[in-house]
Nucleic acid binder design. Structure first.
Lengths: 224, 224
DNA sequence: GCGCAACTGACAATAACATGTCAGTTCGAT
DNA sequence: ATCGAACTGACATGTTATTGTCAGTTGCGC
């Protein structure tokens, strides 16, 4: 097995969340422990968030490798612009991810292409919760993909908070608001939810399958 | 010189916009033309937008290489989210760049991490100009960096369109609106411009240097 | 067509890299 | 402190990748 192949395999192996000793990995790939130590050096140097304590072993959180890309200046601009917008999100998790992604890009790109703290400064916005809904995006998106039902609490008209079980179908960006299209099991009809008005979203254990009348294709198109 | 080093140098060389023959490059790097042909194959295979016509030579548009990165799932999410938002911009150039960046990411990332046309569908927004101001962002940002004066036409209060020469200083994201802070030469004072109300922005040939009283540091902080 | 220069394929020589061995060194547990 | 296992540095050896040579092949201009 070639070295790149082995490095990939090691990464995948580490992402099971368990601890792996160098000796164990060496046996698994039929190389000497020395080679594993060298591999881990390289992996960590290239940013794999792996921890290794003496005598403990290695473990890593799930990561995806983005291979090297050639980007035009416009594409770099889009990258920075998108990052800047997301960085403004109120959700700590999202912001943390955006910050660490920004840091990685900053070290990876030549200076002229990176964010500049001065020119891209973000105001401590007094409308800090304007991007509040963004915090649910990963949950919603994952649920759409996995066809997993969701329980959401929603700030509907008239200041009432409602709780519903829905089948999430599609996320759309409409003007400046994200809209989640779903089949609402509580109302037994299609509904659209503004993401910024969703207070909480919890993936339910139940999955759903496409049923006639409840899929995106069955949705009546709005009249103009 | 190692092969990776040479490949990098070749890329930089090609980006001067002029034509370079294989022979010329071969001489410059003290290798045989055959090696250059092989290098160009690899570079183009990895996405360098270079053209080579028989007997003509090679040239490329400026690109930046993003080395391979290890990203966590959250960081991938931020990447996709930011891209989705920028994709909604009305400006054709920005949208084209976002699309091509999306395509690159899509091919580069394993399926589970990429955009999914169905779930991330973007509505052909009826508020299509909501992100209108984004189209000026690259111009503004470039001008800040280069300390280049700008002529802008601005949609100010009372439906009047004004034209001014400004020294752009800082871009801020305030709630959902981007704000450009600048020294306005027309009014001879600091001014803040909402980017979405800027109708046009043209970089002027004149540069500006920091002058006491006209830099960011000299700007009076707003009273609360 | 013909000539010429640009380009490609194949292969042996060679440079670069990866690996294992082994002799140290570090660090925690006793 | 002392032991032992985990780890690191150095170097010889094996393996892969890169390179130049050279003999084709392509495509353009005449």
């Amino acid at each position: 097995m070639s070295r790149p192949d082995r490095l990939t395999k090691i990464m995948q192996t580490l992402q099971d969340g368990r601890l792996h000793t160098a000796q164990e990995l060496a046996d698994a790939f039929a190389v000497s422990p020395r080679t594993i130590y060298r591999d881990m050096d390289d992996l960590m140097a290239s940013g794999l968030p792996a921890k290794g304590a003496r005598g403990i072993g290695y473990q890593a959180q799930p990561v995806t490798t983005l291979p090297s890309l050639h980007l035009t200046d416009e594409e770099i601009e889009v990258l920075n612009l998108g990052l800047a917008i997301v960085s403004e999100a109120a959700d700590p998790d999202l912001r943390r991810a955006a910050t660490s992604l920004g840091a990685k890009l900053e070290t990876a790109l030549p200076q002229h292409a990176t964010l500049d703290a001065q020119t891209w400064a973000y105001a401590a916005s007094s409308f800090g919760d304007s991007a509040r809904g963004l915090s649910h995006m990963p949950t919603l998106r994952a649920a759409i993909r996995a066809k997993q039902k969701l329980r959401i609490t929603y700030h509907s008209k008239g200041d009432r908070i409602t709780s519903r079980i829905i089948r999430p179908l599609k996320l759309e960006h409409w003007a400046r608001v994200w809209v989640l299209t779903a089949w609402c099991e509580t109302r037994n009809d299609f509904r659209e939810f503004r993401v910024d008005l969703i207070q909480s979203a919890q993936a339910q254990p139940q999955m759903f399958v496409d049923e006639v009348g409840k899929t995106l294709d069955d949705m009546p198109s709005p009249q103009a």
